[in-house]
Every structure is written in structure tokens, then in C-alpha cells.
Amino acid sequence: MAKTVTQEFTKGLWEEIAPFRLVLGLCPVLGVTTTMENGIGMGLATTFVLVCSNILVSILRKFIPAKVRIACFIVIIATFVTVVELLMQAFAYPLFLKLGVFIPLIVVNCLVLGRAEAFAFKNKLIPSVADGLGMGVGFTLSLGALGAVREILGTGMFLGMSVFGASYEPFAFMVQAPGAFVCLGLMLCGMNIIGSK
């Protein structure tokens, strides 16, 4: 089942796109996608953590004893998450205010740990980078798409512009938590309809 580097990358974009196919990492998917900007910001932060932790885990995979691997992964991931948090505070403070508690929660995002355990720990550096990048980009795209749908329907705005004109009454249900579940479910359904053809 040897795949090329390109395949490792592209599988994260469709075939195994994290929130929709693997149904992993749903906490931020549901929590922060009230707007597309938030979704993409969160996705990029996760991508950074994912790629960095994949790199480090892959490099260190020969040295990390199997018995304490999860502890090691968590230390590595937590380090990068804190790095992201500090950098975001320093350079993108408004985004940090919006994403708030969800940034530290990347540590327990099972997508990141899942890729470290399932992929990077068993593979060489280059495929691991490709895998992390692919998964991250796929994650970002999903969050962005979900955020866009919820933003457009829930507030009638898209990136600060009004989509349907002033007479549109925002379907506020969509920006609330239950709306996230319904929206995610409908998008999953759409993916399956397209995918099964």
C-alpha cells in the first residue's frame, strides 16, 4: 500500500478529509465555525500544530519507547499548541479573542494525536509532512466551508458583506450550537451523496 507523497497529501483533501470522512476533531468544528474567518483561523492553527508534531514525531520515532509514546506525543503537541497560542496573541490578537479557549483545546484534538499515532510514528519524514499538511489543509477547508455556510445563513453576511440584501432576516439558529450539528450533518449527507456516485 505504498503511496506517493502526492497521494499522502491529497488523501487528506477528499478521501480521508478529517471532519467529514474520519469524523475526527469535531470539537472545534462545531465550536468555532460561526464565521468563515474563525473557521479558517482555527484550521490554520491546527495545520501548523499538525505539521510540526508530525515532523517531530517522525524524526523521533526511533527514540520514543513504544510504552510512553502517547505521553511523548502529548508533550510535543502541547508544546506546539502553546507556541501557536503565544504567536497568535502576539500577532493576531483579535483572532485570539474570538477563538479563545479553543486554541489550547487543540492539544486534545484527536485529529492531531490520531495522525501522530497512526501515521507519523510509523512513517518517514517526507510522507509524514505530506500527511500532516494534507490533513491540515483538508481540516481548514472543511472548517472554512462549514463556517461560510453558517455565516451566510446565520447572519446574512459573508466576510463583512451582506449577501442577500437588507431584507434578509438572519436564520440565527445556524450560528448557535445546535445549528452546527444540523449543518454538519447535512454537509456529511451531501458529501456521501456526491461520494457514492
Binding site: L60, F63, I64, P65, K67, V68, A71, C72, V75, I76
Partner: peptide, 8 residues
């Protein structure tokens, strides 16, 4: 195990 974790 101890060494790796401590170093990390």
C-alpha cells in the same frame, strides 16, 4: 523511557 521523557 525516563530519559526520553525528561529530555523531551
Amino acid at each position: 523511557m525516563v530519559v526520553v521523557l525528561v529530555l523531551l
